Amino acid sequence: YQVIRFFFVKSRYKAGQAAEYSIYEVVQRWIAPNGTPTTVARLRGMSLLYYDQWSEYSDMEVRKNNGLHAYDINPVCTYPRQRFIPELKRNGFKGDCHGILPYELFTAILSDSRAETLLKAGQYPMLRHYIHSSFDMGRYWASVKICIRNGYNISDGSMWKDTIDLLRHFGKDTNSPKYVCPTDLKAEHDRLMHKRNKEIERKKLEERIRQAKKHEKAYRKLKGIFFGIAFTDGTLQVRVLESVAEFAAEGTELHHCVFSNSYFLEKNSLILSATIDGKRIETVEVSLKTLEVVQSRGLHNSNTEYHDRIVNLVNSNVNLIRQRMEAA
């Protein structure tokens, strides 16, 4: 067996007296050559937040293999003189745990041939992520082997796994070194993530537009008299939103609540969109009671550099709104 022993060190200080120290063993992890563990430990309190809940005078007995007795122990220091069973050395262990707790590393490489292969191939970040996340490595193993064969070091296991998932989503060949061995992993991950986010946003917009069709008739009845109102200062173009579908697009692109909070059904509000060359800049709400700008919101409800200019432009053209109201 490979045995990992944990000791609890206590110190006691009192003014005018010499410091007192004590040490006692609290846990032993016995790991068989096939990776099967057995825990021998003292009793411990139910809290996993503190290491000092051991019952010092309880017996060292076989306990359940759970976090209460050892899984969560991250030792402060490690005794320098160590011995290892030959099976660990056979499976690639050379004395360095590569940032993985010894218990987790030993049980993994003794019981899982894929963990053993990752260690021997020097794919330490991938090994850490595999052990800590416990995902289905079978879905990624063919791609991992391609990396190993091509001498490609996976620098970030989590990011690489996400990249493979994204490649698979977009129908790319995850058995091709061209895709699974990117020169700049982060740049490729971010590019695919951006593409995926755009796809999600597009689907959200399509769904919102489908929902919006239910309210088009009501919106036209409420605000149809204002349709066609538009004005510009040469750079900014401002116009009344003329469909609930436009509310959906406005809210999706600028990430605010003009659609989700159903502003198209607000009797005393008129919503306009301020754009530059077709790009949405801010969404403007005008009170139909006071004919004043209530709010003007850009991306994520923030004010843009054009905010004051937009508000002034709308205020200087409220007569267009008044004329429509009087005509009605």
Rank of each mutant, 00 (worst) to 15 (best):
F6Q: 06
V9S: 08
K14F: 10
S22Y: 10
E25S: 07
E25P: 03
Q28A: 08
R29Q: 08
A32G: 04
P33H: 02
V40K: 15
A41R: 11
G45D: 02
Y50D: 03
Y51N: 05
Y51D: 09
S55G: 04
D59H: 14
Y71P: 00
Y71M: 10
D72R: 13
I73R: 14
C77L: 09
C77E: 06
T78P: 00
P86C: 00
K89H: 02
K94V: 09
Y103I: 08
E104W: 08
L110G: 06
S113Q: 08
L118C: 01
K120W: 03
G122D: 02
Y130V: 06
D136S: 13
W141T: 07
C147K: 14
Y152A: 10
N153Q: 15
S155I: 12
S158D: 05
D165I: 06
L167M: 05
G171I: 01
K172L: 10
K172R: 11
D173K: 00
S176R: 04
P182K: 11
T183F: 12
T183R: 15
M193L: 14
H194P: 00
K198A: 09
E199R: 12
R208V: 08
I209G: 08
I209A: 03
K214P: 00
E216A: 02
K217C: 01
K217P: 01
Y219I: 00
Y219E: 00
R220P: 05
G224H: 01
T235Y: 06
E242N: 06
E242I: 01
S243M: 04
G251Q: 11
H255R: 13
F259R: 04
L265V: 00
E266R: 14
L270G: 03
L270Q: 02
A274D: 06
T275Q: 07
D277I: 08
G278Q: 01
E282D: 05
V284P: 15
E285K: 14
L291W: 02
S296W: 03
L299C: 09
H300T: 13
N301R: 11
N301W: 07
T304S: 14
N319R: 11
L320R: 15
L320A: 15
L320Y: 13
Q323W: 08
Q323M: 12
R324L: 11
R324N: 15
M325Y: 03
E326K: 13
A327D: 13
